[in-house]
Design a protein around this nucleic acid. Sequence first.
DNA 1: AGTTTTTGGTAAACTGTTTTACCTGAGGCT
DNA 2: AGCCTCAGGTAAAACAGTTTACCAAAAACT
Lengths: 351, 351
Amino acid sequence: MGKGRASIRDVARESGVSLTTVSLVLNNNDQRISEATRKRVLAAMERLSYTPSRLARGLPNRRANTLAVLVPALQNAFADVYFGEIISGIYEAAASRGYRILLEVARREYVQRKEYMTLLDDCSVDGILFIGATEEHRWLEEFHGTNKPMMIVNNSFERWGLHSVVCDYRQAGEIAADHLTSLGHRRIGHICGPTDLVTTSEELTNSFIDRLATHGIQLDQRMLVEGQYHAETGRVACSELLERDPGLTAIFAGNDKMALGAYLALREAGRQPGVDVAVLGCDDIPSAALADPALSTIKMNFFEVGAVSCRALLQVIEDRDKDVSEPIAERVPVALQQRSSCCVVPDNAVA
Amino acid sequence: MGKGRASIRDVARESGVSLTTVSLVLNNNDQRISEATRKRVLAAMERLSYTPSRLARGLPNRRANTLAVLVPALQNAFADVYFGEIISGIYEAAASRGYRILLEVARREYVQRKEYMTLLDDCSVDGILFIGATEEHRWLEEFHGTNKPMMIVNNSFERWGLHSVVCDYRQAGEIAADHLTSLGHRRIGHICGPTDLVTTSEELTNSFIDRLATHGIQLDQRMLVEGQYHAETGRVACSELLERDPGLTAIFAGNDKMALGAYLALREAGRQPGVDVAVLGCDDIPSAALADPALSTIKMNFFEVGAVSCRALLQVIEDRDKDVSEPIAERVPVALQQRSSCCVVPDNAVA
DNA sequence: AGTTTTTGGTAAACTGTTTTACCTGAGGCT
DNA sequence: AGCCTCAGGTAAAACAGTTTACCAAAAACT
């Protein structure tokens, strides 16, 4: 136990080889080292309980081997299954490639000072993943055309040509339309998410409406009410819908929380969700399965979205020198998760 | 726009001073630099849009200026107000001192490989904050006696002499006992948290019982039922309590989720929470205020716990060379948050 | 046998900071 | 005048790696 930690030089001395050799063994990408030497070096490392310094390692080629996850300063950004799942996915993908994850919260001050740029400039991270982007994050366009690795997670910003990986909300809308019509529903209400901010929400709603049209159903504009992704707003939106068409037989909500909120409104109106009115959610949060009746929903794999976007970003980072190609715009497929909240049209439905 | 980023050398050249001078300006702790020179250097930095590299900065004294937040691999670690609040607190405190936050998930593999040690050994971080520790995290004792900066957030491990900052659960138990007795309650049930794992839960329960005793109330062992901190377990525990003593007039739950679960059990038993039976929670999660009746609770400032523990850890890091002193064991005060769920003893209460 | 290629390895330059020890000229003191 | 102190600054040695260019010996050709 000498003073301080062992360095690569100590390992070199201990194993009787050069600095370079140890370094090559460390990054065993190079096969220039004989098996015998490699063993010797590894043994020496073991003996000295050597751990290479990430700081020193990153310095020569300015790579931190770290990624930043940037989340907006929502009241409870973390207190959301959504964020948790995505972050877990990112974490797994990053860890499996030896990358660490830096957590950053984009408060107003933070954005004003452009700290997200500093992050890249001071070599703290090699790339940024931004979760929860909305149209109000206009500063994102700074990244347009730059070769600074920035990935928009589960939101698309085609306009600014940024890389993005999203759940396939278009597919989700189509599945929803197909499912509800296949059960015979024609008087349908839709609770959509906040359209002014989030493109994914728009996409879901549009594809749902378009697909309904191909089934010969023209969704009246009045049967489309906006919620804010919380249960309470779902409840309010649903009672609004019930007022506008008391004879509706199915409701498609933009996310599960609002769908569960709709349950409340239905009961208040003396209707039984899953019996009198079909309710279809979107996301498949844990409480969807536990609800009564268990909520049918479009299952979104947020973990996967996180993992895929992380891997894609890593790819961008590795290819950063290559000519700036098309922005990545990947979609992670979704699937119908059938449970008990989507009944067929009840017999007594008003025609 | 020359090739690559500007280094401290470029700044030195641009401003016609030495490397050292620039460095001293950068860490303006030293007042050996005249105002004139400082201005010149700063101007040069501005002109070259210079940003010091964190990697290089940390190298000479092996400081990453980064802290790790380690969370257990719970199904949904993030999907919890608890974690979110604490992490936000940590983040704020860290950011205000120029520290970054690394996010780490302690899966089984992770622990087996002792990656938490690697984190420190490879200079990725200067210290670790561990949230959500339970008795099963035995590996924590490795840190005992080490001068590796490790802070247990909101759990105490006195046994292993680790630093910790917790909400004052003892005070919380006392406040609960005082409050309920002051309202005249004497037949009280308690839903405690998982005692086998979490010391904080034990502390809350013990201080509650002890304090009740000083009011002349001996809490029967049978009126103490354990829950797992979820609403559902709270519901089950509460109906158990109601069965054991149908005449109870007050319930103190170890956290708000279980308290809200108790609402359900009470209603099932035809009792009205806040009217027939007083319910007191602990934590003050957002839904406590929104519940009907609004839940009275012991407000815990998790944000503050995060912030305080972070600042304390930073202190430990700065004093790391000093002799290993007593472990830090700080308590963040709690307060009664009165709402409408704690009625006085109803007149018709069975004596 | 002589030349080329391959294999396995090394010396040295480089990454961008901090820090220690030293220097110089000017003013203050005896 | 001679010495001391101090303000303001600098040179050079860390820190711990990666990478490039080069080299010697052995193996594989002609």
